[in-house]
Amino acid sequence: MQWIEEHWQAIALVLLGGGIWWLLPRSVSRRRIGPLAASLVGGYMLARLFPADSPVGESFLFFTFAGAALLCAILMITNRNPVYAALWFALATLCVCGLFWLQFAPFLAAATVIVYAGAIVVTFVFVIMLAQQSGATAYDQRSRQPLLATIGAMLLLSLLINMMLASSPDDLQVAAQRPTATAAAGALSVPPDQQSIAHAPMRGLGRSLFGDYLFAVELAGTLLLVATIGAIAIAPRRSRGTL
């Protein structure tokens, strides 16, 4: 028991990475339930590294959304069928939107659902329909360098976790108790009676977008226009070839 607590983070990383490595597509088909459960347990152990004192309801919602996001993401990157992968990606998007909602970003949650699940995933499914009509293919049945990729990714994750552990909790608390400092500096966006993002999230975001970031919003609109023209120019015509 002592040993487990000493090596808590390493055990969690090995469970998560080993589960993903086992699930990545290979020429032989393998059992999926066990490694999936192992990765979920690893993710839960990683979350337990940071004890939180949030209320029970919020904690329950967080673990539901975060666990579902982890599950859908793992199933997405390990699925052999691109269509199923796109659908798991849509579910992962919905779970991330739940996490946005928990963090006082309801507009962002709605926008992400509309843009990702409504537009991007549909476009992906359309392209899969156009490009891969023959069904199962050889290159979907095998992954490239699964062991090296998993080990490298887990090293990156442990680096990020240790950075979070090394940052003292006082930094975050000081930042959280200082709501007016940045608001006073950029007084255009947030009036003094609405300094908290929990108070009026939509209104504050709108003021911030069309006050502080007006030029950037115009630039983003231009970017969308340019991307539209570029996509139409790049996409192959029917008259020149077949699709």
């Binding site: 940071f50 992962a92 699964p146 979070m164 608390q173």
Partner: peptide, 27 residues
């Protein structure tokens, strides 16, 4: 509050890393 914040950061890190694995291994 603090541990709560870091849990969200943890989920973000895990999603990033999973995407990286998918980008590196899928063909």
């Amino acid at each position: 509050m603090t541990g709560d914040v870091e849990r969200y950061l943890m989920v973000g890190a895990i999603l990033f890393v999973l995407g990286a694995i998918g980008f590196l291994t899928r063909r």
